[in-house]
Design a protein around this nucleic acid. Structure first.
Lengths: 340, 340
DNA sequence: ATAACACAAGAATACGAATTCTCAGTCACA
DNA sequence: TGTGACTGAGAATTCGTATTCTTGTGTTAT
């Protein structure tokens, strides 16, 4: 049977209220009694029942993360693995825990939101851009439900969000390629409408302004195989690019395979840079230059802010927070004889 | 303000108990009243408070996964990403949710167990081999706390566990290499003491019995770079192996890089096979043969069993369950001119 | 016709902890 | 010595739901 405060109280010959007071560190409990209660709690190995605490104090000690699975499983998405891992790490200091949920269809996704919200299972939510439709955000706002958005709050105004500046980051990589002496830089992205892709294309274009006449933007689907095919295509052209910025590491892997198949050496014949700085980067060829989004830092800010919102400490003014990304420069863009 | 059963009761002019009965599908509620209550619940968008339910009915609707982080983050471990993703997927059918926790040190790991257990935050736990020390398992057993172990329950007797047969799986890949006509097969594993590595080495050796005199077992640390170095070493030897079974995909990537650097072509000069069947496998070279542990299936069994244990339905007899792995054969072991 | 009985639904209680309400005892100051 | 402020701690209530206890009504059997 479970040890409750009542049990402790009986053994210590005090009231249950006093036990509770000792626990919450209420100052108006005599030292002697406090010690006695603490000793017995120790003895009986007592721990408060979080369910009762949650009910009474209106705080579940849980924050939720709802992930949307494109097609059965996030297993392959290093971003989510990283995200979850970082959140859990970050939370381990606080008295919150992480509840992970997921949904396949948009419909059940909706249902999960509903459940999370009205069911009071979690005290707050972390949203991730791709699944944060206007509608859901508006509902959360209306219900005054604490949440922080990771990603670009395109639409919504008064939303707490933490994000990278993808445009800037992309501009930075592209500039790096320019500095390395590449003259004909392309961008391989996903289809239009995917925010990260669009933003990064914008950054790429900004960097090239005044540097390179043609903007060589190619679109394909996610995954290394798709990227390989697309790259093979544009690398066969006579006026092929001599460097390419790729939307993510897996796609970059595809590009590097295409290059190898075509007998192009990296980085001399072709510079390759991408985003996410996955483990993959250390492995592909002699190393793949990639933009590190610094997810731990991003998550740290997200979690801290969310907890502050939950604790109702006055909502801070700067609603949008940008986490700077940094470039992990590796072999794939270090052209021989380039300056420095 | 929150809508409670009492509110619904007031509006429907019934008692709160009746509302609860309607919710739990109690048959002895007149149709008319049931309809009225349901209508009002719908109208007011009522959802029961899970915290109250948890307290009252002694069921949190949560299962816990405690992960042990080797050194700051599981981000790079595709196994955990896959695991979490699968668990969440599997749970999405049930009325349970996943609570992920983690700990860095062994000490705080212990503390988390404690919290999970006595705090009643979760109804059951999923353990993963590497972190399941005797001591913890024994405590869980003593407290009759529901849990299922994923992995090899080396020691403990009466434990519910779900696992792959790593020995068999390894034997199978090795046999596949033999069938492909490789004559000098090596194994590249981690250091002795890591169960998966040891088991797979054992399987490798079992397959070679009577087939190949030397057992070429090499040990190195995890990670593609370590594997690359180790492989470079043994591939330079005059009597180098012509095929190698590698402990995991990342390490296999390292091996394939080493091969390329030494001018050995895969699969003709060197066959490479590994474990886990990560996305990597479709990307490396023309494809990497790998053992698919079928984590979704493994998780499915784990979750099903755990829920059954929680629901106290008589504990089934077969305590240990083996999920068959299957071989994903790809280019890296398909030697030209080999039989079929 | 009345005892025995099923039945629907309200009243009351429990789950375990936090908090508010209350009161006896102490101290201080007029 | 009496009154008011203060303090430490027990009693009672609350959180929202599930369940047991209880009662009133209608049905059946004797």
């Amino acid at each position: 049977m479970r040890v409750t405060q009542r049990d402790i109280a009986r053994l210590a010959k005090v009231s249950q209220a006093t036990v509770s007071r000792v626990l919450s560190g209420d100052s108006r409990v005599e030292q002697e009694i406090r010690d006695r209660v603490l000793r017995i709690m120790e003895e009986k190995n007592y721990k408060p029942d979080v369910r009762a605490q949650a009910l009474r104090s209106k705080r579940a000690g849980m924050i939720g993360l709802v992930i949307k699975r494109p097609q059965g499983g996030i297993s392959n998405d290093p971003f989510f693995a990283n995200l979850i891992s970082s959140i859990v790490d970050e939370l381990s200091g606080s008295d919150f825990h992480l509840c992970v949920d997921s949904a396949m269809s948009d419909f059940s996704h909706e249902a999960i939101y509903d459940e999370m919200l009205r069911t009071r299972r979690v005290d707050g939510l972390i949203l991730v851009e791709s699944e944060a439709s206007d509608e859901r955000i508006i509902r959360l706002q209306r219900d005054h439900f604490p949440f922080v958005l990771i990603g670009n709050p395109l639409h919504a105004g008064e939303v707490h969000s933490v994000d990278n500046d993808n445009v800037l980051a992309s501009e930075t990589v592209t500039r790096h390629l320019i500095e390395q002496g590449y003259k004909r830089i392309a961008f391989l992205g996903a289809r239009t409408g995917i925010t990260v892709s669009d933003d990064r294309i914008a950054g790429y274009q900004r960097a090239l302004r005044g540097q390179q006449a043609d903007h060589l933007v190619y679109h394909t689907d996610f995954g290394s195989e798709n990227a390989r095919k697309a790259a093979t295509e544009f690398l066969k052209q006579p006026d092929r690019p001599d460097a390419v910025v790729v939307l993510d590491d897996f796609m970059a892997l595809g590009v590097s395979i295409a290059a190898r198949e075509l007998g192009l050496s990296i980085p001399n014949d072709l510079g390759v840079a991408s985003f996410n700085d996955t483990t993959l980067c250390e492995a592909v060829g002699g190393g793949l230059t990639s933009v590190n989004l610094n997810i731990p830092a991003l998550v740290k800010q997200t979690v801290e802010r969310l907890i502050r919102i939950i604790d109702e400490e006055d909502i801070p003014v700067n609603r949008r927070l940008i986490i700077p990304a940094k470039l992990s420069i590796r072999h794939s863009t270090l052209r021989e004889g380039a300056k420095r």
